[in-house]
C-alpha cells in the first residue's frame, strides 16, 4: 500500500474523519478566501486567520473539461486514458465559493444549486510511489 500525501499543504484537513477545506478569514472585514493567504484581498489588512470552510456546499456554476489540458496539468493520465472531469464553484458555509474538480462528468449529473460534498481523492502518484491527494466535490449523500 502506497503512502497517501496531500498534493499541497494547507488546502484541507487531512487525514481526518471528516476532512474540511481550509481557507482564511480577515480579522478586520471578515471576508473569507481560498486558499488561505496572509493578507486580505478585500480590505488589504495583514491580519487573517486560518479557518475551516466546511465539507458541504452548494454548486454555484459548473462546466466539464472534455479535453486533456496541456501543462501545467500534471496527472498520471495519457491522452488515451484521460477521463473528462467536472469543474465548478461550490458555495461553502464558510462564506466563499471555491473552485474545484467535480467527480461528475456528464451534464445530466450537474445542476446549479445542487448540494455537494467534499471528497479527498488520489490525484496522481509521485516518483516515490506516494499517492498525491487533492480535493474534489461530488453530489451530497444523505441530505
Amino acid at each position: 500500500m502506497s503512502n497517501q500525501v496531500p498534493l499541497h499543504e494547507g488546502l484541507f484537513t487531512w487525514p481526518a474523519a471528516k476532512p474540511q477545506l481550509l481557507g482564511s478569514r480577515c480579522n478586520q472585514c471578515a471576508e473569507a478566501t481560498f486558499p488561505a493567504q496572509p493578507d486580505c484581498r478585500s480590505c488589504g489588512s495583514r491580519q487573517t486567520t486560518i479557518v475551516e470552510l466546511g465539507d458541504r456546499g452548494i454548486l454555484w456554476t459548473w462546466t466539464i473539461q472534455t479535453f486533456m489540458p496541456k501543462q501545467p496539468y500534471r496527472s498520471d493520465e495519457t491522452p488515451e486514458t484521460f477521463r473528462p472531469y467536472g469543474v465548478g464553484y461550490v458555495e461553502m458555509p464558510g462564506g466563499v465559493r471555491v473552485e474545484a474538480r467535480l467527480q461528475a462528468n456528464s451534464p445530466d449529473q450537474l445542476q446549479i444549486g445542487m448540494p455537494m460534498q467534499l471528497d479527498i481523492i488520489p490525484f496522481r502518484t509521485d516518483k516515490n510511489g506516494n499517492q498525491k491527494m487533492t480535493f474534489s466535490f461530488s453530489a451530497a449523500q444523505g441530505v
Binding site: 498534493l7 499541497h8 473539461q65 500534471r74 496527472s75 490525484f123
Partner: peptide, 13 residues
C-alpha cells in the same frame, strides 16, 4: 502549482 496541476487553470473553463 497545485492549481495548474489539477486542471483548474484553463481560460476555456
Amino acid at each position: 502549482e497545485w492549481y495548474g496541476e489539477t486542471g483548474l487553470m484553463l481560460t476555456t473553463q
